[in-house]
């Protein structure tokens, strides 16, 4: 647990920042041409960007964008994905066959390219970015949920519930969802890390947040032009991105191990 403390702190700080950043006395958009490209050593803080805006303030406000996009995309892809996947798996038949076909079609596209195409079609902006990434992202959850349901529905307590006359929604909610939550939660934590990077990528291409609003991805894109004269423009948001993704991944790993312990314990017991 102590090993995870830094990761927990990073994620908690990220969330807190996203909630409170509106109330902090930050000036991410204040242009001051006298401070253009000043380095942290010369000007303090994290230095200033090509329009003289304070990089520290922009990194902090960028946290909110990343956070909103990450959780928005994960929620928008996990909920419909799990719903579609578990229904297809439980009901089977034509619905299942059709759903599998749809999922295969989505998977046939390279995910990020599809998101780029969609974001281009819908036009730039955070809401469209979230939509585009969720359109690509739900398939993973749907496949996972379907596979879980297919194996769990054979279990005898599910058969017993059917024999007692329980209706399908009740069986899904009480017997299937609680048991498949473990892998889904783990998938979601890894999803968060993936989405933060995807947002940075799309913003880097100019399809994400629009200027003057800050996101870590757009900051890196803008900073690249000055990489040789003012590397702090790229390093500061890059480090933030790196820390958050690493922390979320570490937590995801830990969560997976924690949830797996139970199955290990069960095997030991039956072997004895």
């Amino acid at each position: 647990m102590r090993r995870l403390l830094p990761a927990l702190l990073v994620v908690a700080g990220w969330a807190l920042l996203a909630l409170l950043v509106g109330r902090l006395p930050l000036e991410p958009d204040r242009i001051d041409l006298e401070r253009i490209l000043l380095s942290p050593l010369a000007a303090g803080g994290l230095g200033f960007d090509d329009l003289g805006r304070p990089v520290l303030d922009r990194v902090l406000t960028g946290a909110r964008t990343s956070f909103l996009v990450a959780f928005g995309v994960v929620a928008l892809s996990a909920v419909p994905g799990v719903l579609a996947g578990s229904l297809a798996g439980y009901l089977g038949g034509r619905l299942d066959a059709g759903m599998v076909l749809v999922m295969d079609v989505f998977l046939a596209f390279p995910g990020i390219l599809l998101a780029i195409a969609l974001a281009g079609l819908l036009g730039p902006g955070i809401d469209n970015l979230v939509l585009a990434l969720a359109t690509v992202g739900w398939v993973g959850y749907a496949r996972l949920a379907r596979a879980q349901v297919l194996s769990l529905r054979q279990r005898e307590h599910v058969v017993a519930a059917r024999a007692l006359g329980s209706r399908a929604p009740r069986i899904l909610l009480r017997h299937l969802l609680p048991l498949m939550s473990a892998p889904l939660v783990v998938e979601a934590t890894f999803g968060i890390a993936g989405v933060v990077i995807a947002e940075a990528g799309l913003s880097f291409l100019g399809l994400g947040v629009q200027p003057p609003e800050a996101s870590w991805g757009s900051m890196i894109r803008d900073g690249v032009r000055y990489l040789l004269v003012a590397p702090h423009l790229v390093l500061a948001p890059g480090a933030a991105l790196f820390a958050v993704v690493l922390a979320v991944n570490l937590l995801g790993d830990a969560l997976r191990d924690r949830l797996d312990v139970r199955s290990g314990a069960r095997e030991r017991r039956t072997a004895a």
């Binding site: 005898e156 307590h157 519930a161 007692l164 329980s166 009740r170 609680p178 048991l179 069960r266």
Partner: peptide, 25 residues
């Protein structure tokens, strides 16, 4: 069923397991 381990939902309390049929019916 044969296997008393897999024939109950491990996340449900015994009372809820027994009550399930009454709720369903």
């Amino acid at each position: 069923f044969q296997d008393p381990f897999s024939s109950m939902n491990p996340r449900m309390q015994v009372g809820d397991i027994i009550e399930e049929g009454m709720v369903a019916q």
